[in-house]
Design a protein around this nucleic acid. Structure first.
Lengths: 213, 213
DNA sequence: CCCTCGCTAGTCAAACTTGACTACAGGCTC
DNA sequence: GAGCCTGTAGTCAAGTTTGACTAGCGAGGG
């Protein structure tokens, strides 16, 4: 359930082989430092941790050509690839109110075959409906709502949010079924990483929309 | 911007004076261990930290009557009360996709005068609209959307979520303006804490709706 | 009377996150 | 040609979160 692991695995996987700074740059390019915990410390920590756990293989590299300390390049292992897809599938079907995992999942959804993406998203709508039902059953007391005072507004909010998300998910399913986007089994993928020589228009420091400081 | 601080301050404040286990029990009663980070370690840590920072005053108490280690009782200081209202106001106006802060804020909203609650919620809708506009302006490239491939779905999702939340907020404003609930300036408040002799129907271990394990 | 269970009230290590800081190279200015 | 800024590639301490663990007491069963 770790968003940062999904993001880091996904970024490394896009490059085939990448060092920490490259990953950090991709995540900044995606704006991930604003909607998730993808900040330098967390990224380097996740890389080291996953290398220790055998999800990534670390290659020690001689000091870089362009200044800075010696760097380490990482590559997904078989286990790492498995974990990446496990996290991605889980993120697509799991409903919680945290937007970060969902955002990361949508970003990587095209790594799956089209049919599986649709199936997982349908499962997602199912789970949202189950969650909605469980909230209503669990929190509405026998004496009827209203007994809860303003606390009832929390349930109201949750139900409203769940409905909105189910609706959006159904829209996405429709677009995917209608042939939108290019999925894993369909040739040339959409590439969202920076090439070595490309400038980064969204580097740290550049302000993005949502920064409520 | 810390949800756990808002929750802990709010819980202590309801009791006037409370020890850690009491706070923990309240938060469990509210289900907060499921929609926020309010787990024992975080709660006790927050209490100690805030005591160190002068937001809470700690009274050392002799070993409890009912077994267990000696306990500490906490009370809000003037600074703590200020911080509580600062966090509450901020939580009410700030839009981000994290549901925990919003949930906590709605739970405590009646601690404010009715007019202020309405004003803050109106500010909230304003900020949501600003955020929505910023997303569209920042992320949609000149060549039109669609250039972004499936990544455009992320913006789509954000906008959809923001619209849904603005709608819900306007609904809440309507209900409050219509006279619903009892606010700080209006006598007998709604009490959501457990009395000393009351059983806790939602203790840890009891499963709640949303647990996506 | 002994043992286990559950409740009270926490503690603790390990993992993760934050934000500031370091160190080196190249280019620019004055 | 010294000082300074930018970009590269990260490290580090402090703070926070997680999940498992501790320890004392009373109730109840056998």
């Amino acid at each position: 359930m770790s968003t940062i692991r999904l993001l880091v695995l996904g970024a490394v996987r896009m490059h085939g082989r990448a060092h920490g700074y490259q990953v950090r740059n991709d995540l900044e390019y995606w704006g991930a430092h604003e909607w998730s915990t993808a900040k330098p410390g967390s990224i380097y920590h996740a890389l080291k941790q996953m290398a220790k756990q055998g999800l990534l293989h670390a290659h020690e590299i001689a000091p870089s050509t362009a200044g800075g300390p010696p760097r380490t390049e990482y590559e997904l292992t078989g286990q790492g690839t498995e974990e990446y897809f496990r996290l991605l599938r889980e993120a697509l079907v799991t409903y919680d109110q945290r937007g970060d995992m969902k955002t990361a999942a949508v970003g990587f959804v095209v790594d799956l075959p089209r049919a599986e993406a649709v199936a997982l998203l349908k499962e997602r709508t199912l789970r949202i409906e189950q969650w909605r039902a469980a909230v209503l059953e669990h929190y509405v007391p026998e004496e009827g709502p209203g007994q809860l005072g303003h606390i009832g507004e929390i349930m109201n909010m949750w139900v409203h949010t769940a409905d909105s998300e189910a609706e959006w998910t159904r829209g996405l399913i429709g677009r995917i079924e209608g042939g939108a986007y290019t999925f894993a089994d369909e040739g040339d993928p959409f590439v969202g990483v920076l090439a070595e020589d490309q400038e980064n228009p969204y580097a740290t420091g550049e302000e993005h929309p949502g920064d409520a400081h």
